[in-house]
Design a protein around this nucleic acid. Structure first.
Length: 556
RNA sequence: UGGUCCGUCGCCAAGUGGUAAGGCAACGGGUUUUGAUCCCGUCAUUCGCAGGUUCGAAUCCUGCCGGACCAGCCA
């Protein structure tokens, strides 16, 4: 266990605990249930849950459901599942901002009574005009001076459904000349006759994010309300509301930079387009940066957590983490934990001519070479086996250094079995190699043989006992580092080779017992996972999670 | 050009006045029945730039330069 890296959030929390400002901390993860979680959310989850865990605090899951028109129960279910899968659990029941609608309404009345809020009849368009611009101050609404009594009455009528949607709104009375536009009498409540997934038709007015979020934090006793940098400009409003309302606690909002990863997009709108236009098979397509997509790809929760941990937390904007870092975290976890197996993706038959017809035997290999305690697996071997087409080359002049695989007249080690020598090969009319004739070196199973230096080690599968499988090989979805930056239309940068479906693969028999979502290392190929939904004992389907690190390929 | 924030190795990122951590990548070498893993080593005299304060600055001050965010009755 290494020391957790220092970061400013940890420092703030540690100081608050040390100074006695707080005895324990409470964080929250506040998704809006209007879409699926992706790698960016994974950071928010890991930061909020991770920080609380580290300091023995607690984390609430609170759905920020103040905009019923965009939200759905289905997203709530999916989000809960993703968070649990990532390995986190929230304190107590799932919470909803809508749980506090009654209190929020009272808070609004409180503000009105203190002369800090008013009902404004300006239309959306007029309000925009009155708001001013980034460089010019706004103008005060003509309704700003309404009496407290009138505002109270009007607000109640808003609640009672006596006005049409959009006819008026409740606004905080702050400062129309503020250089921070969020302080120019921001909207607190709007009229919206929409059925809410939690509160049904009880309300026709809904609080804005600004009016709901901080108060929700305060009600729950959240101590550190962590959010992304774009909410920085909202902090003065967050604090203003906390100061002007009789809330039970004073949470502190702290912003940190969101996660960007190159070669991927995370905007909800863009991901939806990939799904809608059938570029991918769905939100959980293994190429998607969604939690469910990565899960189906075979990425483990531990790998995601490790990646988030590696990429750090800061306030630096516009930074982009290299996808290679994610891949490294994935390999690191899978290398440690994935059982090994042999699979031949593109089979080429090898006849071992010096073995008798019908010869069969069983060889054993460790489940994991670095973890003998995991036991061994038995692998049938016979006179006819298959190796990968890429592991044979008819050009025997290839140097041993350049091609550490099988070549006519030379030796190669079959992993866990014999050293063999290629004696000859056959071709079809099109010039494709169809079969290799080879001989085994007697006594070479598990033993080195004096005077014979195989060029390398290759995987193999028994031609008869091997089990057929379908393997899907995935690559990055985009071939551009920043597919959606600047003038780029991300749809122009799709990698045309992001999916290759290989049928007719042959895998070692033990793999027929693989259960969905079980991950393996197919030796010399990479990490693969039995598909969560389409894999079965009778129809093996594996998704490639990530290849092995390959210095050779990069040099070539 | 109103405001807020940010700029430390190719990419992340520590460091907050005492003389540049770490990870990813890259590059050498060793071990190896996975061209994997593992191990060892190399990789910022310099912290956007220019001044200033100080015995001493990435850290403080000033001015530039570059980038991000904000004008939804979205979150």
């Amino acid at each position: 266990m290494t020391e957790p890296a220092s970061n400013f959030l940890r420092t703030i929390v540690a100081d608050d605990l040390k100074s006695g400002k707080h005895d324990t901390i409470v964080t929250r993860f506040p998704p809006e249930p209007n879409g699926y979680l992706h790698i960016g959310h994974a950071k928010a989850i890991c930061v909020n849950f991770g920080l609380a865990q580290e300091f023995q605090g607690q984390t609430n899951l609170r759905f920020d459901d103040t905009n019923p028109e965009k939200e759905e129960q289905a997203y709530i279910d999916a989000i809960e599942e993703d968070i649990r899968w990532l390995g986190f659990d929230w304190q107590g029941d799932v919470k909803f901002t809508s749980d506090y609608f009654d209190t929020l309404y009272e808070y609004a009345v409180h503000l009105i009574k203190n002369g800090d809020a008013f009902v404004c009849d300006l239309s959306a368009e007029q309000m925009r005009e009155y708001r001013g611009s980034l460089t010019e101050p706004g103008k005060e609404s003509p309704f700003r001076q309404r009496s407290i009594e009138e505002n109270l009455e009007l607000f109640e009528k808003m609640k009672n459904g006596e006005f049409a949607d959009g006819a008026c709104s409740l606004r905080a009375k702050i400062d129309m000349a503020s250089p921070n536009i969020n302080l120019r009498d921001p909207i607190l409540y709007r009229i919206r006759r929409a059925h809410h997934h939690q509160t049904g038709d009880k309300w026709c007015i809904y609080p804005s994010y600004d009016f709901a979020h901080g108060q929700g934090d305060a009600i729950e006793g959240v101590t550190h309300s962590l959010c992304s940098l774009e909410f920085e400009d909202h902090r003065p409003l967050y604090d203003w509301l906390i100061e002007h309302l009789p809330v039970p606690s004073k949470p502190r909002q702290i912003e940190f930079a969101r996660l960007n990863v190159n070669y991927t997009v995370t905007s909800k709108r863009k991901l939806k387009r990939l799904v809608d236009e059938a570029v991918v098979a769905g939100w959980d397509d293994p190429r998607m940066p969604t939690i469910s997509g990565m899960r189906r790809r075979g990425v483990t929760p531990a790998a995601i957590r490790k990646f988030i941990d590696m990429s750090g937390i800061s306030r630096a904007v516009g930074t982009t983490v290299d996808l290679g870092m994610l891949e490294s975290a994935i390999r690191d976890d899978l290398n440690d934990n994935a059982p090994r197996a042999m699979a031949v993706l593109k089979p080429l038959k090898v006849i071992l001519t010096n073995l008798p017809e019908g010869h069969t035997q069983v060889v054993t290999q460790p489940v994991h070479p670095q973890k003998p305690e995991l036991g061994e697996r038995e692998i049938p071997f016979s006179r006819e086996i298959v190796i990968d087409q890429a592991d044979f080359n008819e050009d025997s002049s290839l140097s041993k250094k350049k091609f550490k695989r099988l070549v006519p007249g030379d030796y190669v080690r079959l992993r866990g079995a014999y050293i063999i020598k290629a004696e000859g090969f056959s071709k079809d009319d099109d010039g494709n190699i169809t079969e290799i004739q080879a001989t085994v070196v007697e006594g070479s199973v598990g033993e080195n043989v004096e005077g014979i230096k195989p060029r390398g080690v290759i995987q193999w599968v028994c031609a008869n006992a091997g089990v057929p499988a379908t393997v899907r090989v995935y690559d990055r979805l985009f071939d551009h580092e920043t597919p959606d930056k600047g003038d780029n239309d991300f749809m122009d940068h799709l990698n045309p080779n992001s999916l290759e479906v290989i049928k007719g693969c042959l895998v070692e028999p033990g793999l027929a017992q693989a259960s969905p979502e079980q991950g393996f290392q197919f030796e010399r190929e990479g990490y693969f996972v039995a598909d969560r939904f389409e894999h079965s004992e009778n129809h093996l389907v594996f998704n490639k999670t990530i290849g092995l690190r390959d210095v050779w390929e990069r040099k070539a």
